[in-house]
Computed example of a mutant assay.
Amino acid sequence: MTTIGINTLVYMDALRNGTPQSELLATIAAHGITLAEIRREYIADDAEYDAIANAAAQQHMTLFYSVPESITVNGEPNPQFEQYLDEAARMGARNVKFNQGDIKDVDTTVLQRIDNQAAARNLTLSIENDQTPHNGTFACTQASLDHITTNGSTIGYTFDLGNWYWRDENAQQAFNRLVDYITVFHLKNVNGSQDKSQLATTMLQDGVIDWQPMLDRLSASIPVFLEFPIPAEQVAEQVDIVRHAIAHS
């Protein structure tokens, strides 16, 4: 059965109030969730990497790691690429997600180096369509994934359902055309506002995206992460909605 994960962005209020992500893992586990995605931008100090690793071990959790940086820059791996991988390995994470950068244009040897450096740490990698014009359009995402596949790289793809709206792209069409590349699914819904200043995520049952049929088309091996801010008192409800959708997919 599909594994449900929680990205710590779900607890945005706690993160903004300075709650360490290591402390959030027990809260996530209390919902019966054993998969969590840690966000690098909310790691306050070096000691937190070990604290996260210890908390994950105590809760018997699997970790993914979200790094809001480009995987490649100017045709080469990000200058801090190996540092990011080492951080993930230190926490015991399984997967590291990056922005696309210019990976659609890099040489095959660069892809091979990236794959080898990840494999040496027992890590898998993925790139994401984010909300920016450089890393979030359908055209650049398709080109990146085609280049990765053509060159035999093992880099996967995190499909972020809501982000397409910030780029005026059709989320359903993007899903239809990219579904075979997906290795991780970031689930959220949006209000669909044409005014970008008013565009926002919603609770899953309240937005404009018909997301449930998409889950039906995903392999059970693809984890589905809740990845949007949720009031603490509504997290259990949102998890239950996804569980129900998966059970009936």
Results as ranks from 00 to 15, higher is better:
I4F: 00
I6M: 03
R16V: 11
G18I: 11
P20G: 10
I33R: 00
A36C: 08
A36N: 06
Y42S: 13
Y42M: 12
A44H: 11
A44V: 15
A56Y: 01
T62C: 06
S70L: 13
V73K: 07
V73I: 11
N78H: 13
F81Y: 07
E82D: 15
Q83K: 10
E87R: 00
A88F: 02
R90W: 11
N95F: 14
K97Y: 06
K97E: 13
F98G: 03
Q100I: 15
I103R: 01
V106T: 12
Q112T: 14
Q117W: 12
A119V: 07
N122P: 04
N122Y: 10
T124I: 12
I127L: 02
E128G: 02
N129P: 00
Q131Y: 10
H134G: 09
H134D: 15
A139W: 04
H147S: 02
N151V: 03
G152Y: 05
F159G: 04
F159W: 01
D160I: 01
D160W: 02
N163R: 05
W166F: 13
E169Y: 02
E169T: 01
A171M: 05
F175Y: 07
R177E: 12
T183V: 07
H186L: 09
N191L: 04
N191T: 04
G192V: 05
Q194W: 10
D195S: 13
K196M: 10
A200N: 10
T201D: 08
T201E: 06
D216V: 09
L218A: 01
S221C: 09
V224W: 01
E227Y: 03
A232N: 10
A232K: 08
Q234D: 14
A236W: 00
E237M: 10
D240F: 07
H244C: 07
A245W: 01
A247W: 06
H248W: 00
